[in-house]
């Protein structure tokens, strides 16, 4: 029995040597498990009371998001010479980064539009900091000569999940061209004597076109900065 055991040990040793394996007389080991690492997420979106889709979210860092005029806004702005105001909200997150800046601009389609309501219109925007209205917050007047607000810092924190929502107010002043038409009414009367009497009167009337297609008014770009 002892000879058999010795033979088995020798065989195992020789087999190990022949295959080039390390022959450890003693060893100890421990395992380190994989370590998960938190991951930051970036997001940028706008939602407004006067656009067809509730939320327009950016798909990447180069994606613009838009505030558009729906039919209701078109009608409201076209019906008055006063400002038509509405609210919109910017939602941003930049987890793990130093911050995110965004900028509000007039769209090219708005600047170039021949829409009877919005052609030549101006827009101004201001932050609603506490939900109670603009108050003393500064207004940014957006015109063809100055179409952007400048950067607004949305998120300035790091190493944690961090998101921010900014409420804004936008006011549109439309000066729709009033189209004029002349209406003439004519009355012709045949008398018993065979006389024909005719009278006519004309008057002028003005009207506004207050319906139109959806139009992108504002676009928002954003930029994430890391340090």
């Amino acid at each position: 029995m002892r000879k058999l055991a010795l033979l088995a040990c020798a065989t195992l040793l020789l087999a190990g040597l022949a295959t080039g394996d390390t022959y450890a007389l003693w060893s100890q080991e421990y395992a380190i498990s994989a370590r998960s690492v938190g991951h930051g997420q970036v997001g940028f979106a706008v939602s407004g009371s006067h656009q067809e889709t509730e939320i327009d979210a950016a798909r990447d860092a180069a994606d613009l998001v838009f505030i558009s005029a729906d039919e209701e806004l078109h009608h409201e702005a076209g019906s008055t010479d006063a400002e038509t105001c509405f609210g919109f909200t910017v939602s941003a997150r930049a987890d793990g980064n130093a911050g995110l800046n965004y900028e509000i601009s007039l769209t090219e389609t708005f600047l170039d539009t021949d829409d009877p309501v919005f052609a030549g219109a101006s827009i101004r925007v201001a932050r609603d900091l506490d939900g109670d209205g603009v108050g003393d917050n500064p207004w940014f007047n957006l015109t063809s000569g100055s179409p952007s607000t400048g950067a607004q810092t949305a998120v300035a924190a790091r190493k944690a999940e961090q998101s921010a929502q900014h409420d804004w107010v936008a006011c549109v002043t439309a000066h729709p061209e009033e189209e004029e038409y002349q209406n003439t009414a004519t009355v012709t009367v045949h008398t018993d004597s065979g006389q024909v009497l005719s009278a006519s009167d004309s008057w002028n009337a003005k009207f506004r076109s207050v319906t139109g297609p959806r139009l992108d008014l504002l676009q928002l770009s954003h930029e994430v900065f890391h340090s």
Partner: peptide, 20 residues
């Protein structure tokens, strides 16, 4: 930058072995 709810890759685990 990740605009989806993705995850960072784990740092892989490993085994430490000391022997004679």
């Amino acid at each position: 930058l990740d605009y989806e709810d993705a995850e960072s890759p784990d740092v892989p685990g490993f085994t430490v072995r000391m022997g004679q």
